[in-house]
Design a binder for these strands. Structure first.
Lengths: 149, 149
DNA sequence: TCCATAAAGATGCAATTGCATCTATCTGGG
DNA sequence: CCCAGATAGATGCAATTGCATCTTTATGGA
């Protein structure tokens, strides 16, 4: 019988870790050396921008980013402290709040993009053809959706 | 003009982050619920086991794991404190040391494997065919090409 | 030989993450 | 209506990570 995670699966896992660490480190370094906030800020700002005028509930953002609840709570603290996000009470849910992007938040996201984009190109784009990038995105997408097996 | 990271590249990057976070979180949770040490311990123990009787220098382990120097230094502290690794002075390099695996270290790695393996299968294996896993491993490998290989 | 510089590793301190738990509100069944 | 969960979010505290810098030993010229 074949051993339970097959050799290619173990390999894929190991490389997922390494590739991610390498890319992540490189990208964070680029942002920092440009005097910009960390990656996670960009992600949050982008999701909020995409959400439009209605804003997002923290738990929605949490699911989108796959962030732990307590980490997100504190990430939001920092974004609010920096003036990029505003918290307001939710009208429909007394327990909850709604997050909105400020003008400064929108501006910061925009300001981060060129640096971030260049870093992504270096960390990922440079190494792959267009077709390969598409395949990679496809396969990675499968890892966090319901299995089809 | 084509934007500099092409859309598939950005997508691949975004999914690399998400997929990694999802898998990482799931695997760590499995280890913890089995009362076992974190992932990084396994990696280090495995590398040391592979290195055989000669052991490894911290900086070699650091390169292998893509770990920051100060993080590795402290990871080793913990492994030594747990009795899984021993530090000894390097014979050839007065600045350095050599790491060796203890019997307990070897045993712990072995003990972690079944739990780790099952978690990998759940996080990765379940979602992909054999051919897909191979392709994924291949593409991910391209992202962190080490110069001397 | 001597020195400037580089490499190996450690460490103090600040920021972030993880864990457990807490408060407050909401929801569904009796 | 009422209460036992469940859900949204915050938070105290411990562990880990990141950053800057330090010590010690190697190395490669002039």
């Amino acid at each position: 019988m074949a051993s339970s995670p097959s050799e290619p699966v173990v390999r894929a896992w190991a490389r997922l870790e390494r590739a991610h660490r390498a890319a992540q480190t490189a990208v964070e370094a680029r942002l920092k050396e440009a005097g910009l906030p960390p990656l996670a800020w960009y992600d949050a700002l982008l999701e909020l921008e995409r959400a439009g005028a209605d804003g997002l509930r923290p738990f929605e953002l949490q699911r989108e980013m796959l962030f732990a609840q307590y980490n997100l709570s504190r990430l939001i603290d920092r974004l609010v402290a920096a003036g990029y996000v505003v918290r307001s009470a939710s009208a429909e849910d007394g327990r909850g709040q709604v997050l909105g992007l400020t003008r400064e938040g929108r501006a910061m996201r925009k300001r981060m993009w060129p640096v971030y984009a260049a870093a992504i190109e270096d960390a990922v784009g440079r190494h792959l053809s267009l077709a390969e990038a598409t395949t990679l995105a496809d396969l990675l997408g499968r890892l966090y959706s319901r299995p089809t097996k």
